[in-house]
Design a protein around this nucleic acid. Structure first.
Length: 112
RNA sequence: GUAGUAAGCUAGACAGUCGCGUAUAGCACAGCCGAAAGGCAGCGUACGAGGAAAGUCCGGGCUCCAUAGAGCAAUGAUGCUGGAUAACGUCCAGUGAGGGAAACCUUAAGGAAAGUGCAACAGAAAAUAACCGCCUAUUUUUAGGUAAGGGUGAAAAGGCAGGGUAAGAGCCUACCGCUAGUAUGGUGACAUACUAGGCAUAUGUAAACCCCAUCUGGAGCAACACCGAGAAGGAAGGUUAAGACUGCUCGUCGUCUUCCAUUUGGUGGCAUGAUGCUUACAGUAAUGUAAGUACUAGAUAAAUGACUGUCCUAGACAGAACCCGGCUUAUAGGCUUACUAUAAAA
RNA sequence: GCGGAUGUGGCGGAACUGGCAGACGCGCUGGUCUUAGGAACCAGUGCUAAAAGCGUGGAGGUUCGAGUCCUCUCAUCCGCA
């Protein structure tokens, strides 16, 4: 199995957030934009203001794990950025809710 | 047993499946890129967050600023004594003061006769004390004496008792407090004893300025060094004004200031260090010395997760980012040791 | 990661060397005026029924007395390749 590829640079994130289409779920929001390669690149962005470092890591792990499980079913050639909805308390973050959210959002976006 | 005090330890465990980061003189070399060197990827193996990693409050190492440039001395910090330490505002042992029934705990604790400032309101007066009262003289008015008593205030001129007096007053005496001196003990802070002083020992405030003693150049790994690519341009103004470099003086370096345009990637720095653990010796202790032994995170959108099962006390606070020594703050539950007080029962 | 600044009624913003906190402006509430609204003018406006008391992000300390001085802490904002 190949390694997961991620977005790295600040301008890459800005590109996706400015030009991409966004879809809002219960707990997470995704931004999607086409790229011309044959792979999917993804990134996770959580503001410093929402919570502290431990909880940010907690959310990132849940999202990354879910993406890992679902990524082979997706169409290829997109940049994806995940955001956490600010108003949701961090304690409610759960693996299963994110899983459902992610399925619905990718269906909406037409990647599934 | 109950209540409490002090010190220390721990920070859910185990099993299965999938997955992440770093290293790799292992396997494979049959995958991808490349002319090649090599890089990426696969399998295996090893290791993989904390007691506070946090706050950034102090002290160092390290790097650059010129080789901490020189002087004045400002600014800033610390502030009982002795010791420890690379250093410290930290730690250890003591002293004084305060708290507690005790174990024990707290303590920014130098100087107010070097000088300056401030003390609102109230009060006669807030620092060279006379408002009421008391006493004496006097017909009243008034003059003098007086800090016992009243009232004001956060604070009112040693406290209390007796003597004394016109009334009073350290005016005199005892005790307590204070100050000075001497002696003894202690490295010292200081303690104890004795003697002397009637106490002008002249209110409080130095976390007000200040004085004294000690220390102090600035910036920070986004420092800095190297490699590759890009750019290295134009206009206007100023030559002693601003910068390096916080006040002033001198000195050095680089021309300097404003506007427009531009400003990306990689490698090193980067983990063997004032290091941890064990034992012995020195010391009350902090700590030091010697020997043995171990090396066990090193990312860069940033690694520990998900699911299932079992158990219990049902898991708090919380995520390394150059590295150490502290401090402070957050913190569920459990365990160990020492000590203090005490009801009831046996 | 490192460095720096700021917190005062609902909002902006004062309070000089510590000495009556809420000046001033905006808003809000009530009233006058008007058929009605606006404008204008008048009064009120931190908490509590009132007194007492508590109130300057929070917790301690110094002081007779802290918005102001000191220590710790929380939140917000800014800069640095």
């Amino acid at each position: 199995m190949k390694k997961m590829k991620t977005l790295k640079k600040n301008y890459e994130f800005e590109n996706v957030l400015k030009k991409g289409k966004f879809y809002i779920g219960k707990q997470i929001t995704i931004y999607v934009v086409k790229n011309n390669s044959q792979n999917n690149l993804f990134g996770i962005a959580i503001s410093k203001k929402t919570c502290k470092a431990v909880q940010r890591n907690y959310i990132k792990r849940r999202i990354r794990e879910n993406y890992r499980l679902i990524q082979n079913d997706l169409k290829k050639g997109y940049n994806i950025v995940f955001l956490w909805n600010k108003k949701i308390p961090v304690n409610e973050a759960s693996f299963h809710i994110i899983k459902e959210d992610m399925k619905k959002l990718f269906e909406k976006a037409g990647l599934l």
